Computed example of a mutant assay.
Amino acid sequence: MILHSRSIEAFIVVAEELHFGNAAKRLHMSQPPLSQQIRRFEEEIGAQLFVRSTRSVKLTPAGAMLLKKAKQLATDGQLAVLAVRRTASGESGSLTIGFTSTAAYQFLPKLLAGYHTRRPDIALTLKEDLSANLIILLAEEKIDLALLRRPAAANHASLIFSRVSQENMCVAMQNCHPLARQESIAPRQLHGLPFVGYSAETALYFREKTQSLFAHFQIQPDIVHESVMPTLLALIEAGAGIALVPESAAHLRPAGVCYRPLKDAGATAAIDLYCAQRRDDSNPATQTAREILQAITPPFFSPPST
């Protein structure tokens, strides 16, 4: 059985006034139609709600019970409408953000801080994963937005990508390494040195970027181990070799590791961070996240692309 909102409203007003004439005035209608509406309402729910006489109108026990429930229902309905409107406007709701580990060094904290300031009523959920997996999660609608590295093969018709930032790779090494005495390092100086490389399974983007740089400058590194950030830095601190890492990784400062920029490496040393979302995304909270990211990195934030 469906209780219609007009019938509930009419019942509440009559129950509050205990006078059909006064109730009709509040409802901007005449008394006879109101009396008929209440009788139909009683028949619909199968209970007498009022005791009527020529002198008074009183609630029955069933009517008193219904009045309490009906007022709560009306309040809940108003709150539901308010919640729907706030969600539609992006003031409340939920957002699930996926991110790759290197995005957490600099941009994820700023995004979260901005979100808590602008939209404190949005429930944020975080999901850390590999870039390739984040693309799958986006396509399957398990996350709303992703901060990721975009491997060359990461094209998906249902997704759009916007570049959030661009930075350069630098050389990470032990403090006691001979190259640590230099302010910057020419790429060719890396030829033949022991290197901690990136795993194809867990760090494909960085593996592709470093291999591209090696090929461009005809560098043949001695890859002694393959890993992923931040384990890679621990291996460097232990003396396993050197590595090319994002400049933002300098925020992670193991005691025995230092960083030096590459000299004249050009675009081959550049690495990008992307914001990805579904093309048909309709969650207002996603757009708010994009606006915050754009405010954080205005020189780099690019228009969406496929």
Rank of each mutant, 00 (worst) to 15 (best):
D272R: 11
L82S: 02
S162W: 09
Q36N: 07
G93E: 14
A203G: 13
F206C: 02
P246W: 11
Y105L: 12
A74F: 06
F107Q: 13
E128N: 13
Q78Y: 03
Q166L: 08
Q36V: 13
S131E: 10
Y198A: 07
A83Y: 02
Y205D: 06
A23F: 03
K110V: 03
H225N: 06
L147F: 06
T288L: 15
A203D: 14
Q218Y: 00
E291A: 15
L3G: 02
R40F: 13
S94I: 03
A172D: 06
I292H: 04
L73F: 07
K142Q: 15
N133S: 11
L244T: 01
F301A: 06
L262I: 05
S305M: 04
I242Q: 07
Q211D: 11
I136L: 14
V57T: 15
H156F: 11
T96C: 08
L34H: 09
H225E: 12
V228Y: 05
L262M: 00
S7C: 01
L148F: 10
A24C: 07
Y105M: 12
D121M: 09
Q220H: 12
T125I: 03
P178W: 02
Q36Y: 11
V164W: 05
L213G: 10
F217W: 10
G266S: 00
D144K: 04
A80Y: 08
H28D: 07
T202F: 14
A234W: 02
S248D: 06
A47M: 13
V84M: 08
F20R: 03
G114F: 09
A215E: 14
A132Q: 10
H225A: 04
A295K: 09
S131N: 09
I271H: 05
H28L: 06
L147W: 03
A180I: 03
L95V: 07
R188P: 01
Y274C: 07
H191W: 07
M169C: 03
I296W: 09
S305F: 01
K142I: 05
P120R: 02
